[in-house]
C-alpha cells in the first residue's frame, strides 16, 4: 500500500511529521474474532496467556490491515492485581469481557495500592506479550493504555458510591483519585519501559453525560494532566460519551493527541481546537463495524465523512466489538488508506 510501515506511519503521525497516508489505528482494543480464530482459541482465553494475547492482536491487525496492535483487551487487570476476583465467562458462548463481580473494598479509605502491583495478577503478562509482538511483528506499533483515575475507581469500588461521594465526601474522593493517579503514572511508565510504542489514557467514566463539565474541571482535569505530564511521548487522551463540552479542556491536559467517539461532533471540535491539535476518531463501533444490515457502501461513506470532518487519523470510538462484519471492517481500513492520502489538518504528506 504505502511506503511506510504501520509503525513508521503511526509514530510519525504522533510527532506530526509528514506521512504517506492516513493510518487506521487506535488506543483502545483492536482484537477481532477472525484474528482470535486464527490463533485457534476462544475469546475468554486471550486474556490470560501472553502468547495468545500477542498472537490474536497480531493476527487481527494483519487480517484487517490495522496500523497497530493494542493490548491488553480488558479493564480488570489492575483491580484483579489488588486482590479482586474476575469473571472470565469461560462457559459462555458470547463474547463477554472479564468483569469484577464483587469488590473487596467497600469504602474509599480502604484503598491501598501495593507497591509491587506490576508483579501481581495478570499484569506480568503484558511485558511478555509486548516482547512477543516485537519479535513476531516488528512492523506494527504497540499501543498500551491505562484507565483514568475516575474510571479506575469504578473498577476498584462501587461506581454509584463514588458518584454520590463526589458531592457528599469530596475530600475522600480526591484522596482516592490521587492514590489511583499515582498508580496509573507508575503503571504507564512501566508499560513504556517494557517497550510499548504509544500509550493512551482513557477516561470514559467522566463524559458529560455522567459528570458535569464543572466537576471535570475541578476533579478530573488536574489529575489527567498530572498523569500525562509524568509519561513520555507519544501519549494520547481518550474520552468516550458526550465530549463536546469537554474537548477544549481535554486539549489542555498535555496529551500529544485527542481521541473521541461517535457522540462527539468532530467537525465542531476541529473548529474549536484549530488545525494544530492531533484529533482522532470516531468510527461508530456498532452500527458501522458490527451491524449486519450496514452495507459496504455505508461503511465507506462513514469513513469519508469522518475524514472530511477533519480528523488526523481514523480511530474506532471505543474498543472494537470483536464480532465485526469482515467486509465492512476491511472497507473501513482500506477507505482510510485510500481516501486519506491528502494532508489532514495537523499532519502533512510525504
Amino acid at each position: 500500500m504505502g511506503e511506510l510501515t504501520p509503525k513508521e506511519r503511526v509514530l510519525r503521525l504522533l510527532r506530526k511529521e509528514p506521512i504517506d497516508t492516513m493510518p487506521f489505528f487506535s488506543g483502545m482494543g483492536m482484537v477481532v474474532m477472525p484474528g482470535i480464530e486464527k490463533v485457534g482459541c476462544k475469546f475468554a482465553q486471550i486474556h490470560t496467556d501472553a502468547s495468545r494475547m500477542a498472537m490474536s492482536a497480531i493476527w487481527s491487525s494483519r487480517l484487517m490491515g490495522f496500523d497497530c496492535v493494542v493490548i491488553p483487551y480488558d479493564m480488570t487487570m489492575e483491580s484483579e492485581a489488588v486482590g479482586n476476583e474476575i469473571s472470565l465467562y469461560e462457559n459462555s458462548e458470547d463474547i463477554l469481557y472479564p468483569t469484577i463481580p464483587h469488590k473487596k473494598w467497600k469504602t474509599m479509605e480502604e484503598v491501598e495500592i501495593p507497591k509491587d502491583i506490576m508483579e501481581r495478577g495478570r499484569l506480568p503478562l503484558l511485558p511478555k506479550a509486548i516482547k512477543i509482538i516485537k519479535e513476531e511483528a516488528p512492523e506494527l506499533p504497540i499501543g498500551c493504555w491505562q484507565l483514568g483515575p475516575f474510571t479506575q475507581a469504578g473498577q476498584m469500588l462501587e461506581l454509584d458510591m463514588i458518584l454520590k461521594a463526589v458531592f457528599k465526601e469530596k475530600k475522600k474522593v480526591e484522596e482516592l483519585l490521587d492514590k489511583l493517579t499515582d498508580m496509573i503514572i507508575e503503571l504507564g511508565k512501566w508499560l513504556q519501559a517494557s517497550g510499548c510504542d504509544y500509550i493512551t489514557l482513557r477516561e470514559p467514566g467522566v463524559a458529560a453525560d455522567l459528570l458535569s463539565p464543572r466537576t471535570f474541571k475541578e476533579l478530573i482535569q488536574p489529575r489527567l494532566t498530572r498523569i500525562l505530564d509524568a509519561w513520555k511521548s507519544p501519549k494520547l487522551l481518550h474520552i468516550c460519551g458526550q465530549t463536546d463540552p469537554l474537548i477544549t479542556m481535554m486539549a489542555e491536559c498535555h496529551a500529544d493527541g485527542l481521541t473521541v467517539d461517535i457522540k462527539n461532533n468532530i467537525k465542531e471540535s476541529r473548529k474549536k481546537l484549530g488545525p494544530d491539535v492531533l484529533l482522532m476518531g470516531n468510527v461508530d463501533t456498532y452500527k458501522i463495524t458490527c451491524d449486519p444490515s450496514t452495507t459496504v457502501e455505508q461503511a465507506v461513506e462513514h469513513i469519508k465523512w469522518i475524514i472530511d470532518n477533519g480528523v488526523d487519523a481514523v480511530m474506532p470510538g471505543c474498543d472494537l466489538w470483536p464480532a465485526i462484519v469482515f467486509e465492512n471492517m476491511k472497507a473501513c481500513v482500506d477507505t482510510t488508506h485510500e481516501y486519506g492520502r491528502r494532508p489532514s489538518p495537523a499532519v502533512g504528506r510525504l
Binding site: D160, K164, F167
Partner: peptide, 14 residues
C-alpha cells in the same frame, strides 16, 4: 437541561 448530572440524580433517587 444539563443542570443535574448522574451524581445529583442518584442522590435524588435516595
Amino acid at each position: 437541561r444539563n443542570e443535574y448530572f448522574v451524581p445529583e440524580v442518584l442522590m435524588c433517587a435516595d
